[in-house]
Amino acid sequence: MLTLSNKISLSRIFFIPPLVFCITQVQHNNHYRYVCLFIMLVIGLSDVLDGYLARKRNEITNLGRYLDPVADKLVLVVSCIILSSDRIWPEPRFPNWIPTVIVCRDLLLMFGTIVSLFITGRMDCQPTMLGKAATSLQIVAIISVLIGNHIPLPALIIIWWMAVIFTFISGLLYMYRGVRQL
Rank of each mutant, 00 (worst) to 15 (best):
T120W: 02
L83S: 06
A54P: 05
D72K: 14
I39N: 13
I142R: 05
T128W: 10
N6R: 02
I139T: 10
I82G: 04
F21K: 00
V42Y: 09
L130K: 04
D124V: 07
L156I: 00
R87V: 10
N30M: 14
T167Q: 11
L53Q: 01
C104P: 00
M162G: 08
G148C: 12
A71H: 04
L49S: 02
L45N: 11
T128H: 14
I43G: 05
E91V: 06
I142T: 13
P92H: 09
C36N: 04
D68Y: 03
K132A: 05
M1H: 14
R12S: 05
N62I: 07
L108W: 09
A163E: 08
R180Y: 06
F14G: 03
L19N: 07
L137W: 15
V103W: 06
L41C: 15
I13M: 04
T113Y: 08
L41Y: 04
N30K: 15
L172T: 13
L117F: 12
G148V: 11
M129E: 11
I39D: 03
A155G: 00
L63T: 06
L2S: 03
T135L: 07
L108D: 02
R93C: 04
N30P: 04
W97L: 11
Q25I: 00
R55D: 04
W161V: 15
L49N: 03
E91N: 13
H150A: 14
L37E: 00
F94Q: 03
P127I: 03
I39A: 07
P90H: 08
R65G: 15
N149Y: 11
P69T: 02
M123H: 10
P99Y: 06
S136V: 00
R55Y: 03
P69Y: 05
L10W: 09
P99M: 07
S136R: 01
G178A: 07
L63S: 03
N149S: 13
T135R: 08
N6Y: 02
M129R: 13
P127Y: 13
R122F: 12
V164N: 10
G112N: 08
